[in-house]
Write a protein that binds this DNA or RNA. Sequence first.
DNA 1: TAGATTGTTAATCGATTAACAATC
DNA 2: TAGATTGTTAATCGATTAACAATC
Lengths: 223, 223
Amino acid sequence: MVENNDKNIPTLGAIRRLGKYLQILLSLRNEESEFVSASRLSRELGIHETQIRRDLALTGCEGRPKVGHNRDELIWAIQNYLNLNNTNDAFLVGAGHLGNALLAYNAHGRFSSTGIKIIAAFDINPAVVGQKIHGIEVFHLSKMRNLAKRMGVHVGIITTSPESAQEVADLMVEAGIIGIWNFALSNLNLPSHIILENAEMESGLAIISRRLKEQLRNNSQRR
Amino acid sequence: MVENNDKNIPTLGAIRRLGKYLQILLSLRNEESEFVSASRLSRELGIHETQIRRDLALTGCEGRPKVGHNRDELIWAIQNYLNLNNTNDAFLVGAGHLGNALLAYNAHGRFSSTGIKIIAAFDINPAVVGQKIHGIEVFHLSKMRNLAKRMGVHVGIITTSPESAQEVADLMVEAGIIGIWNFALSNLNLPSHIILENAEMESGLAIISRRLKEQLRNNSQRR
DNA sequence: TAGATTGTTAATCGATTAACAATC
DNA sequence: TAGATTGTTAATCGATTAACAATC
């Protein structure tokens, strides 16, 4: 009765991969066959077959030997496992360039695959407060706390400057938000129960930069 | 003479962490002491001390027992190791919302910590072609190939819709680009020598969503 | 049936952490 | 000196892959 984590604890990697499987599965919805095998997904994504089986097992969806998994059943299982069925509402703070981009993504449903939906934005800049951006109203930051409590919002997205990030995060915690997606380049100091994900966008670029250096060096050596 | 990778092969994780150390070190530049210990970084970032020592060893920068590492020397070593000293020029394709946000970041120097600088943008939309966005000119996509070859650009950033991403990526490869940072939600099919990093922005959100589910469930059980 | 596919147990691999001698 | 910190070797941990029996 005490410990009851249905299966195993999902690893971060597994969650990311499940998202990819889902993406592929959704794109295959117009195919004739209603079955998709792990082998098929493996070929499509270049991920090891066994790994895919492992990941799929997490969702509790069982496949049939020789045929594979029922596509729609699997879609449902992954969506359920990733909590995409019952959407969580989110607040975004910082209606600058990146905030705008995220609101556009939100409007185009790109985040629907994550189970999170932005329902309001906040800023302190009078030029944007009161406006609607991609269908989402921008309120003054001072209203966030009350609105969050009133609407039971649990997720916050920070797209402010690094200087304001800590302050905004503190406000969010006060407002009862427990999951924070931080795009500002700063190490936030938060209570341990808060779920913090740093977007760290640029780390991808840094990796490319490093690899490029290796590759260019190798080429010049070989020549 | 054949194999000559100065130290070990850096792991992806190590590269990400080195970026964080660098960030902290830069923010400490105004401090009195010119020495920073791994223990200090450990406290600051919550990363295991030994791990930090491992990572720092990659850069070849040696510390002094009892005092730590010379701050500026370490900054230099990390920047050098991550190839931040000799900047790589990059092209961005897709001057939409996200493209705009990245160009703003570029202008504000947020990518300078990655050693990559966007020097031109491309699109096919007549409304933006010819304009300057955050100081960067937007050319018609048809000009990319020649410009890339002429300017020796090796890095491409894709911020188009998922539908156009493959086509743009192919164009980039033809143009001699070997490192691609892809923000479009699509599995690109590319020659194996191409360095591909998928930004997968939303995976952070997905993780928050999953964790939130666990936490809310636990809370309600406990009650 | 035969063969493809599943799901699980065991083996491998790699990254993180612990332990400790070296050193200033 | 004594104590803090380094850097490395060994131990642990976790995730990925291999091997294989079960099954439709």
